[in-house]
Each structure stands twice: as C-alpha cells, then as structure tokens.
Design a protein around this nucleic acid. Sequence first.
DNA 1: TTACATAATAGACTGCCGTCCATCTATCAA
DNA 2: TTGATAGATGGACGGCAGTCTATTATGTAA
Lengths: 198, 198
Amino acid sequence: MGDIAKKAGRPINPEAGEALRSAALRLVREEGYEKVSISAIVKEAGVARQTLYNRWDTKAELVLEAVFEETARQAAPPTDDRDLPYARLLADFLQRIFAHLERDGDTMRALIAAAQQDPSFGNAFHQKFVAPREAMVTDLLRRAQAAGQLDPARDADLLSQLIHGALWYRLLNDKPVDADFACQVVAEVFRTEMSSGN
Amino acid sequence: MGDIAKKAGRPINPEAGEALRSAALRLVREEGYEKVSISAIVKEAGVARQTLYNRWDTKAELVLEAVFEETARQAAPPTDDRDLPYARLLADFLQRIFAHLERDGDTMRALIAAAQQDPSFGNAFHQKFVAPREAMVTDLLRRAQAAGQLDPARDADLLSQLIHGALWYRLLNDKPVDADFACQVVAEVFRTEMSSGN
DNA sequence: TTACATAATAGACTGCCGTCCATCTATCAA
DNA sequence: TTGATAGATGGACGGCAGTCTATTATGTAA
C-alpha cells in the first residue's frame, strides 16, 4: 500500500539525480557558482546533458536543491520550550543562519542574484527559502510580544523584514555577517525592553 | 589652459559613447535588462562591437552609467536648511528614492544581481551607488542625534543598514517599495522619539 | 511475446559572449 | 610630408547555453 503507483515507461534513475546534485555542490563549493558551467556539471556527474534538463530547468534550481539537502536542518525554527528570553532565542537563530553562511554564503549570494534574473526561479527560491525564514522570525517576535518581552504595538512583519534586510544587505555588500552583527541587530530590535528584566 | 592635454592618435568619438548609453537605456527600459544582449545594443547604437568594449567592460557598467545620468539628481542628499524634523526629512528622502524605483526598479534589481556575479562591477556599483546613499542616511541620522531628535546611544551605521536593507529586501523580493513603506520604516526608527514634539 | 511509454544518451544546431585580428581613419609631432 | 599613436570597423574564433532529434535502454500492460 505504501507503493506509489508505478508508471509505464523506463523508470527514472535516482543515481543520475544524486550524481548531479553532488557534482553540482562539489564544483560550486570548489570553484564558485559563476565559474561552474552546466557542461562541467554533467561531465563531472557522468550523465548526458539532457538528463539534467529532465530534472531541473536551470543551474540555480539544481544548486538550490543540492544546498538545501545539507542546510535544511541548520535553519530549524528556534526552539521555544525553554525559559530563555526571546531576545536570546532570536540571537541564537540568527547566529545559526550566519554560521551556515560561512560555508555557503557565496552560493547564497549567487542564488539571490539568480532569483532576480529568472522570475520562475525567483518564485521557487522565495517559497522554499525566503518565506519560511521570514515567517520563523515573525513568529518568534509575535511570541515575544505575547510573553510581554516586546511591545505589542510594534509591527512584527516590519521588524522581520528589517532584520532579514540587514542580513541580505550585508551579505550582498561583502560585509561580515557574523555573531557580532547578530547581537547588534537583536539589541536594536529589543532596545527598549532591555532595561527591564530579560 | 582649460584644455586637457591632447594625446596622440585618433580622438575618441563622443557620439559613439552617447549613442551606446542612450541605446542601452532605451532597450533596457523597453525590454528589460536580461533580455537585452550586447549585440542588440551595438546594433541599435550603430557602432562596432569593439567600440563598446573600448569604453566599458560589461553591460552592467554601461547600464549603470546610463541610468546614473538621469537619476543622480533624484538622489540628491536630503536638504537640511529648513526647520523640518529629521524624521520628515528621512521620509522625504526615502520617498524620492522609491519614486525613482518605480521607473528603474527592475533595472536596479538587475544591477544588484550583476554586482554579485562580477566582483569588479560589484566594487564600482558599491562605490558609485551604494556607499553614497548609505552615507546620506547615516549623516542624516547623526544630525538628528545632534539636534536631539534621536537618541545618541543608537548606532547610526546599524540603523542605516537596517533601512537600506529593508529597502533592498523588498525590492529583491518583489514587494511594493512605496511611500507607505517609507513611513513605516521611519516610524519604527524614530519610534521612541515620536511622543515628544517632533 | 508484443505493444507501448518514458528515461538516457550522443550529437547537432543556433545564438550570444568575449576576445582577437587586420584594416582603415583621424589626429599630433617632427 | 612623413611617421607614430590610437580609435573605429567588420569579421573570425572558441566556449557555453538551451533546444531538438534520432537512437537505445528499461520498465508496465495486454
């Protein structure tokens, strides 16, 4: 019953897709997104050109999927079950994102750029990557408001956009995106509440 | 004496450069940055391919210069000589930028993307476009602090990055960047000072 | 078995990019 | 006038993208 209805025709070869994902990730990390050509990926994976295009429309979609396999866990939503103040939870969450950027920041820059040039990929990128992270921060801020740690009059959506915006702005302008910056942002967001008990 | 020392050799033809700038601007506005090829620009301008490469290294540099001619005035630093509150000056400045984005926002998105893919253009873009605007906002915030309209303990650099980051974030994610948003951002930045007289 | 459907492959094809080259043209200096 | 310098031009070139086609491989259903 767990079986998926089998289709007619030759079945897809999972190894080809896996070879393409891992080849893409390896090449992109070694040489940088821009320098890796589609031709190089299929050559490295040992499959035909068309086999890549059967699965993905663009290099960006392939690389997004390849990076996502490794990083989905690292962007897990901030846990809520302990008694830590929300300012601290936000700082931890941002630092986890930033740690990931140390490895794949250049690739993420390239994917953000690709999202501007290809509306179709832009939609996929926003849906799979941008929106979930924005929602995580918005939710966290709302819970902070419910817990009395953030003024309920503040606009959580706007704050989330300011936070992510600052992150993107620094990433796209080659400025360090590190734990220190995370603390600065959190301090600014929770500024007026910092005096009272955390 | 005002003459620039004349060099040997055939002088540069200013008309060729002007034809390339205006052809590039017209094509990019009509068809969108991505769809305009270098070949199409030189064809439209009626010059040889190499003539373009004699002046610019990439399409991005040409388009940046072409757009800049028209928009430099619109991004003039916020005036300071009147008695308006700084919150109002910041809102006016942001709205002027946003008005420009209504016309060339798609092109700016494309240039931001190009800056990620080409480090050399990234430097030029940052120097000619990003840094000046960031400095304008930072200066304005510092003057607001000096005038007692913004808490001097706040980090003006960080605030400027939050503001521009939010702008970029919305631009790059296809969300409206309008006067309404400008007011929201300003209200958040000047939040704690709004109760006192503006 | 046979018919059918779909994946995988190799290769051809067009279009654009960025570079290179030979040639022509415009200006200055001697 | 002559030679040197440098911009402008058209054309050629190799590399990659994305599409297409013919062929082969691998499965299901009758």
